[in-house]
Simulated assay, not measured.
Amino acid sequence: MNNKKTTSIKRIALLTSGGDAPGMNAAIRSVVLAAHHYHIEVIGFYHGYNGLVCEEHIAMAEPLTLLKVNSIIHLGGTILKSARCQLMHEAKGLQLAADTLNDKNIDALVVIGGDGSFSGLLALQAYWSGQMIGIPGTIDNDLDGTDYTIGFATAVNTGIEAIDKIRDTADAFERIFIVELMGRHCGHITFNVGIACAAEQVLSFENFNANEQSSKLQQLATEITTAKKNRHSSYIIVIAENLWPGGAVELARQLHLQADIECTPCILGHIQRGGSPIAKDRILATKMGVAAVQALIDGESNIMVAEQNNAMNFITLDEAIKHKKVVSKQLIDAQQNILALTAQTQC
């Protein structure tokens, strides 16, 4: 992290990039309000980094006024829209982004997004000398150095509400459901939702290896059969997306073919990314937005705002994306060694 030095900032560029997350609008609002307090103008760029490199999107850039953000804290998605930008992987795109920021007299760039978005910031360092700060907005909760990312709590809550409803119909028909949750390549959502919903099985990257597919299939079949013999009225298997080859649908098919077990696959998909953010995400986003503006005023750059032990902190962007944040070992151990075993013997 850079040594602190007070800086004079007149204009901040703000964009949201990558997958949307509930609470991004709350973060946008917070940045604008905090900047207004310090008499700093915020220019909103639309459609992620495309807003810096594509003419039609650059033309959409506009000042974000207090009126513009007054009633957005409760909205899901992002008023600045979001997208991925292939050009930011090329020198040509990075130079275009730098030229746009210079042409618009931008002093600092704030990006709300995940690891791909922050990789863009790191690459831009070689082309633009302004200050840059990332605010972690992703439902996956996979950025290192922060306890939580904006959107994670709401995504977990959405998953819980959906599976609670699935449990009702599973109980009514005494059926087995396989529910697939988002999270890309980590199991923060899967383990938190699975445990909160009392799922009989939680399958994620942290407790399953693709090389073990055959043995895991046999184990699942045995445990499901045992549970049904013990008069389970329903059985819920929660799995992470991108985990089982072919996903929940293929797992259900294999259980039917190999063990004559009927399962109903259910893929929650993008429902987890939408919806009004819950209080935890609104508050986290607000704190992070204020902290980002204050950090810029203090002369910080190339950092990500982070929440650590309920306090705002900062870590370098390269530290934040160096490796994926791991799921709590306590959650994994509790599910594997106590909760899953108990579920098989309930009557």
Results as ranks from 00 to 15, higher is better:
Val238Leu: 06
Val327Trp: 02
Lys10Asp: 08
Pro22Gln: 10
Gln86His: 13
Asn207His: 06
Leu255Cys: 01
Val53His: 01
Gly183Thr: 05
Ala343His: 14
Glu180Asn: 05
Pro277Ser: 09
Leu268Arg: 06
Asn25Gln: 08
Lys4Asp: 09
Ile166Glu: 07
Ile303Arg: 08
Thr286Trp: 00
Ile112Phe: 08
Pro265Cys: 06
Leu143Gly: 07
Ile133His: 06
Asp168Ser: 10
Leu80Thr: 03
Val293His: 02
Gln219Phe: 11
Ala343Cys: 10
Leu96Asp: 06
Ala196His: 07
Ala199Ser: 15
Glu180Ile: 00
Val31Glu: 04
Asn102Val: 07
Tyr46Gln: 08
His256Arg: 13
Gly48His: 00
Ala196Met: 08
Val156Asp: 00
Ala98Ser: 13
Leu203Ile: 14
Gln201Thr: 12
Gln86Glu: 15
Thr342Val: 08
Val327Asn: 04
Ser214Glu: 15
Leu317Asp: 05
Lys5Val: 14
Thr225Gln: 12
Thr149Ser: 15
Ile28Thr: 11
His256Leu: 14
Ala91Glu: 15
Cys197Asp: 11
Leu14Gln: 03
Gly274Met: 07
Cys347Pro: 13
Asn25Trp: 05
Leu15Asp: 04
Lys324Cys: 11
Glu180Lys: 01
Ile160Pro: 06
Leu33Lys: 12
Gln213Ala: 14
Ile271Arg: 07
Ile12Cys: 05
Leu14Phe: 02
Leu251Asp: 05
Glu262Ala: 09
His89Asn: 15
Thr316Cys: 05
Ser215Phe: 02
Ile239Lys: 02
His74Ala: 12
Ala320Asn: 09
Ile271Glu: 08
Glu56Gly: 00
Ala334Asn: 12
Glu174Gln: 14
Lys287Pro: 00
Gly23Phe: 04
Ile297Asn: 09
Ile28Asn: 05
Glu241Ala: 01
Ala153Asp: 14
Asp20Gln: 12
Met304Asp: 02
Glu300Val: 07
Gly51Met: 00
Leu122Ile: 15
Asp103Cys: 08
Thr226Ala: 14
Asp115Val: 03
Ser119Leu: 15
Gln335Val: 11
Glu223Ser: 12
Met288Pro: 04
Leu52Phe: 01
Tyr235Ser: 02
Cys266Tyr: 13
His188Cys: 00
Gly194Tyr: 04
Leu181Val: 12
Asn242Ser: 12
Thr146Leu: 02
Ile166Thr: 07
Asn242Gln: 13
Leu67Ile: 10
Ile271Ala: 13
Met304Asn: 03
Lys10Cys: 07
Cys347Thr: 11
Phe45Asn: 03
Ala35Gln: 03
Ser71Tyr: 12
Gly274His: 09
Ile28Ser: 05
Glu41Gly: 06
Thr100Leu: 05
Thr100Phe: 03
Lys287Thr: 02
His185Phe: 11
Arg231Trp: 09
Gln258Asn: 14
Asn230Gln: 14
Leu217Val: 05
Asn310Tyr: 03
Gly187Cys: 06
Ser214Met: 10
Trp128Ser: 03
Ala320Cys: 12
